[in-house]
Design a protein around this nucleic acid. Structure first.
Lengths: 359, 359
DNA sequence: TGGTCCCCTGAATCTAGGG
DNA sequence: CCCCTAGATTCAGGGGACC
């Protein structure tokens, strides 16, 4: 994408900066916006220490509506620069996440999931007045209902030991060596753990994608993007955060391409028609196929179609009709009997791919 | 409280019914409003079954603004009848919870916590298109910032093996004998588990308190209230649900201490996926693994899968395939070489648990 | 009686690409 | 735009049948 300030940090207000970028130019947006506002119109972050010092006189509704206006403005600017098939992530807590979620929906974003980051080691509730606030919420949206967004399902499944990834993620908070400090004091009050961004970027982008973070802070998004071979664009108002972020990102080593590889979706593999297996003699015409429970039997015909009683059709069609199901994956449904064992057609397909190449 | 229809179900629209009740008369409100799901066509499971979705007329709204008007009206009516020191709980999913949360705040409610119900056994995502929608969200509010609400901190701590109760609760969904059925068919599509209401009522009410549920359904709130010695007021429009709820509640025996003990939730057994070690940087992508005899070597990839020659898969799958065994515990099979010594992955897992906790 | 296996089900915004 | 077809896609728990 020409003209994009890739792998750089823009020092500016995020709304102005986004308005200066070309439309439909970034693949993903990750945003960790400020969560509350005070009388002066300045926005503070949750652990900023001034949260309890609210003036009693302020009008809640008025306050929320100011926050809502701010939220809609930056979300609208984000929407403009997001590609039509891109997605946006916004993280927040109960203080702001409902406003953010409603605004996202009002602007036409389509919620795909709300993700709960369940903190493995949260701050306890010292006063014993509420439940320990042990999670934050992320909202993941596409730009519209029918957008074809990126979701690396198999990579997420692999990351979770072959069980599909759930909407609740247990991850530790950012501590120890990962926590960026300046003169021994944490550089930013709400630095997010890299593991969180790691999962987000791995789930929803491909290597080389452009990820924008309008509230860049100390640059966790940039650090993880660089590590994973994605491009970042950071926007941050505060020079002191930018300074820290630059230093931090400079130290990051990108992964090798090999390490960066993930489990691929089967949809991405080239299509093999069943007929190709018949043509090459890997499956002989006349072979009888059966399902795993040996309930149904069908014969392979010379053109790669099947016949079962008077019915004829593709491996998928006949599998579906046999079961009375709306659809069926014939590759996994039908089996060939070999020395008393049932081998799925899918295994033959893998052999075909190995033998004749995948192209 | 004179004039309150205690331990009864009002057959009416909830807004009208609440408007007919005296102001500031109930101690707690638990509400499970329609979620405004926006479902497309039928959804089929991989094995061919059809998902029995929520398609009831009561969940249909024209658009967000219609839903918002409905939400504000019933919340305003609820606010009027709630005692000044009472609290309200509303449960929802990402479809509606942001609208609900924003409306609560706009009406002056003060959010105390958002509570995540992490479902132990959610319905999977059958098409591999998103993260498994494995939780629902409850918002817990007092009527104002300075209200002196009830929170039984010690009871919650006791329920959680003497550790502060967190904002994320792991509970199974409502199935088995608890699921109310009529002629073998579920009486209500969205019946909530009693364990959920048990925790809510135990946390935020005293015995004898009055708990109102404006979307009573098949009466889980009433059943648990009776069990725990609280009063309930149910409001429900549909006579068929009321009939079921009455029968159900009639059978409830107020609980003995012994029975209470069995209601206490088991702590979820933590499972650490290998991917978690990669995400947190404890095991870097690109690391080479080997078995104790150094016969096999595999590389760690970004998503926690391994690659060995052309083969890819989980630590368990690749361990099994390497040895030609039907299964393999990858945690003990694979090792990392560290200063000439081989450390099993299992040791890394123990370190992870020690560092980040297991819960 | 016990173990094994199969079946059923749960608030779901649930496909992709070519003609 | 619609229509059609290939084919990718599920976890945990409870209950009942069967050996």
């Amino acid at each position: 994408m020409a003209g994009l300030p890739l792998d750089r940090i823009i020092e500016d207000d995020c709304i102005a900066a986004m308005e200066a970028l070309p439309a439909k130019s970034v693949d993903m947006i990750f945003a960790d916006p400020p969560y509350n506002l005070q009388l002066g119109g300045d926005l503070y972050r949750p652990e900023g220490g001034r949260v309890d010092a609210v003036d009693d006189a302020w009008d809640k509704f008025d306050d929320f509506s100011t926050y809502d206006r701010f939220t809609r403005r930056w979300l609208a600017a984000a929407r403009r620069i997001l590609k039509d098939d891109g997605t946006i992530w916004v993280i927040g807590s109960y203080h702001n996440i409902f406003r953010v979620g409603a605004s996202l929906q009002d602007l036409g974003f389509w919620v795909l999931n709300d993700i709960v980051w369940r903190k493995a080691n949260p701050m306890p509730n010292f006063k014993g007045t509420r439940f320990t606030n042990a999670h934050e919420t992320m909202i993941w949206c596409s730009k519209s209902e029918d957008a074809r967004y990126t979701f690396n399902y198999q990579a997420m499944k692999a990351l979770n030991e072959d069980i599909q990834m759930r909407s609740d993620w247990v991850l530790p908070i950012c501590t120890g060596g990962e926590r960026v400090k300046v003169d021994g004091i944490k550089a930013h009050p709400t630095q997010k753990p890299e593991a969180l961004l790691y999962r987000v970027l791995l789930a929803c982008t491909e290597p080389g994608a452009v990820v924008l973070d309008p509230f860049f802070g100390t640059g966790t998004t940039g650090a993880v993007a660089k590590m994973l071979g994605r491009h970042y664009i950071g926007i941050e108002r505060e020079p002191r955060y930018i300074r820290v972020a630059k230093e931090r990102i400079a130290k990051v080593q990108p992964m090798t391409d090999e390490a960066m590889a993930t489990m691929q979706s089967k949809r991405a593999q080239p299509r093999i028609p069943f007929g190709a297996l018949v043509e090459t003699g890997m499956v002989k015409a006349g072979t009888m196929l059966t399902d795993l429970s040996r309930r149904y039997r069908a014969a392979v015909r010379a053109d790669g179609s099947l016949s079962m009683a008077d019915d004829k059709g593709s491996i998928h069609q006949l599998g579906a009709r046999a079961q009375g199901a709306p659809s069926c994956n014939g590759w996994t449904f039908w089996h060939i009997e070999n020395a008393g064992k049932l081998v799925p057609l899918d295994t033959m397909r893998q052999q075909y791919r190995a033998e004749y190449g995948t192209a």
